[in-house]
Design a protein around this nucleic acid. Structure first.
Length: 615
DNA sequence: CGTGTCTGCCC
DNA sequence: ATTCTGC
DNA sequence: GCAGAATGGGCAGACACG
């Protein structure tokens, strides 16, 4: 009987349960690897779908497919299928901090005839769940939300045991069991190695070596060709040994972009690059753009998260042919796309860029112009450049492209050597409306392009990372939101306000949910739970869109750091005094620094001070 | 057809 | 995005 | 140091609703 059930989705569910029960990485890997081994041996045709269910996806990122399901629709589906009101489900969610658990508990406590008999002969299977998710993603147009909810309900009705929990979380897009992409790749590699007949004959040390090589191979291949649709068939056909041959960087398919580590001081920067030739580049405040030119002349542009942004940027598609020199045929170019003022020839803030249309963009109707800032070349005329040094890649980039005023530039950079030079270049970048600097090693093995890795080789240096530098505000805690997941039973985020002495009111300015250690969160909960009030104070100025789960007596001031201030449609700080009458001010990337025991709420940052910071 | 809410994706 | 934490 | 999971502001686009 167990074996039969083993073919159903329930076995995957049991694997998730096992994974969730531990925090040990190796144990997690054992469970998933074992599941993949079974799948490869017993039903290899289901492997691809299984992988997608582990990752809450239905296809590669660059296919721009969305489920269009969020918390709200899930609550609706759960409420209807278990015969409860949405309010009741919301209350449960606030209490248990996990919609998955809410779905499971409300379903298991419901003992109606239909729930007892309705699912007898339609147990969930991996393909069934996967196909339902695909179907949900495909529904659009009038009444599509109802149809999506019905589809979810059908799945929920067939669920048993812990299945509703994982199904719900999967539809939310996060399993939250300590399992994500990197671990899935490791397990996939291990499963393929271990199902190879030769493997058992190897000595122990040799086995470990084989496993490590396979993991390295799969991780590397996936970062260059992030598509299980392509990798899984290749694996099933030729195994890991032949994988590199069939799956490699291909223009037209985005690769995982290389990322950077934040650094807290210039000294830290120098420590990391010590003994190497390195460069400092301006870090532009725009959107990542990975531009692909195929052999057939097609051009595409992808986002940092591998979304296909080609239709968003017809202007870029048009101009890039002019920037590419005659001998530059196929290529992959790494750029930052930045909003650009064509008259003043200056960079515009990210908030301006974000107002650009995204779909069905016609070049003639573009309202926000952009300038491209290229910083790396990953592929050129049929050849991958990933293993070349940054110095070589940069030279090839400079030789293959030409700058066009107001349209296409190479990122501004210098080859600095000491603290003073870096400091003054950092200042210069800020004056030019950039976020700071990127510091990169130029030559040797540590300067290859490492897709997806936040490698130590690329560092980012922003002024707000430096202690004592950047915008710091002292704000009053006026409300809080119940935590989810590992923050269940404490507040997970807080609503903050500045003080306006003129109107004698506290004006909301942002929510904050990061910068807290686990012990901070406990301390805050224990202190603030005593300060809860049934209603917000009359002198709180807030928008209903930011209404917290609980309100507080104004009693504590927190030092908060931000990268920038922004004009806000929902927060009330300095309302009407910086932009349109209805707009206030908020913080970009707010994080908790410390409690200001020395300040009373009336000593908090004032709206006037907020205006001074933003102007 | 205007407005409000939700979702996904930029950072 | 930023930050924290177990491994 | 990696990998994962908490959490931020704010925009366009898609629907639902009246």
């Amino acid at each position: 009987m167990l074996v039969l059930i083993g073919k159903k989705a329930n076995r995957l569910c049991k694997t998730f349960e096992a994974i969730e029960s531990t925090t040990k990485r190796l144990e997690i890997q054992e469970y998933l690897t074992s599941f993949f081994k079974h799948t490869i041996e017993l039903s290899p045709g289901n492997l691809l779908e299984t992988l997608y269910l582990c990752l809450n996806r239905v296809c590669p990122e660059y296919e721009n497919v969305e489920l269009g399901i969020g918390e709200s629709l899930l609550i609706k589906a759960i409420a209807e299928v278990t015969g409860r009101t949405t309010q009741k489900v919301k209350n449960e969610l606030a209490k248990v901090g996990d919609l998955g658990k809410v779905a499971r508990d409300s379903k298991n406590s419901q003992k109606s005839i239909s729930s007892m008999f309705g699912n007898r002969d339609k147990l969930l299977t991996v393909p069934k769940v996967f196909n339902s998710m695909k179907k949900i993603a495909s529904l659009t147009g009038h009444s599509s939300q109802d149809l999506k909810v019905k589809e979810i309900q059908n799945l929920l009705i067939s669920c048993r045991d812990e299945e509703p929990k994982f199904l719900t979380r999967s539809l939310e897009g996060k399993l939250r069991i300590g399992l994500a992409e990197q671990t899935v790749l490791i397990c996939l590699a291990q499963a393929f190695v271990m199902t190879d007949k030769e493997y058992e004959k190897l000595a122990k040390a040799k086995k470990t070596e084989e496993l490590n090589n396979a993991i390295k191979t799969i991780k590397s291949v996936y970062s260059e060709l992030p598509s299980y649709d392509k990798i899984v068939p290749a694996l099933l056909k030729g195994g890991i040994k032949n994988l590199r041959e069939h799956c490699k960087l291909t223009p037209g398919i985005p690769l995982k972009p290389m990322l950077a580590h934040p650094t807290k001081s210039i000294t830290d920067v120098l420590d990391s690059v010590e003994g190497h030739k390195f460069t400092c580049e301006f870090k532009y405040d725009g959107e990542r753009g990975q531009i692909h030119r195929l052999e057939d002349g097609t051009t595409k542009i992808f986002s940092r998260n591998l979304e296909d942004n080609t239709v968003k940027y017809p202007d870029i598609i048009e101009r890039i042919s002019k920037a590419a020199k005659t001998n530059t045929k196929s290529y992959v170019l790494d750029c930052e796309v930045v909003a650009w003022d064509l008259e003043k020839h200056i960079l515009l803030p990210f908030q301006v860029l974000s107002t650009r249309k995204r779909k069905d963009v016609k070049e003639a109707e573009i309202k926000v112009s952009v300038c491209l800032f290229a910083f790396d070349l990953l592929y050129l005329n049929g050849e991958s450049l990933l293993k070349k040094s940054l110095e070589e890649r940069r030279k090839l980039m400079n030789d293959s492209f030409q700058e066009i005023e107001d349209e296409f530039s190479f990122v501004q950079n210098i080859n600095a050597t000491n603290i003073e030079e870096i400091q003054s270049y950092l200042d210069e970048s800020i004056k030019a409306n950039c976020e700071g600097l990127m510091v990169k090693i130029l030559d040797g093995l540590e300067s290859t392009y490492e897709p997806s890795k936040r490698s130590r080789n690329w560092l980012k240096l922003k002024k707000d990372y430096l202690s004592g530098v950047g915008d710091s505000l002292d704000l009053v805690v006026v409300g809080a939101f119940y935590g989810r997941g590992k923050r269940t039973n404490v507040y997970g985020a807080f609503l903050l306000a500045c003080y306006d002495p003129e109107h004698e009111e506290y004006q909301t300015i942002c929510k904050i949910g990061t910068g807290f250690s686990d012990s901070d969160l406990e301390t805050h909960f224990n202190y603030l739970k005593e300060k809860e009030t049934s209603e917000p104070k009359s002198y709180f100025n807030y928008d209903k869109g930011t209404k917290p789960d609980v309100w507080f007596e104004p009693c504590q001031v927190w030092e908060v750091k931000a990268a920038d201030l922004s004009i806000s449609p929902i927060y009330k700080a300095a309302i009407g005094q910086v932009s349109e009458a209805s707009k206030g001010v908020s913080l970009r990337f707010p994080r908790f620094i410390r409690i200001r025991e020395d300040k009373k709420p009336e000593d908090a940052t004032t709206s006037e001070q907020v205006i001074n910071i933003i102007c």
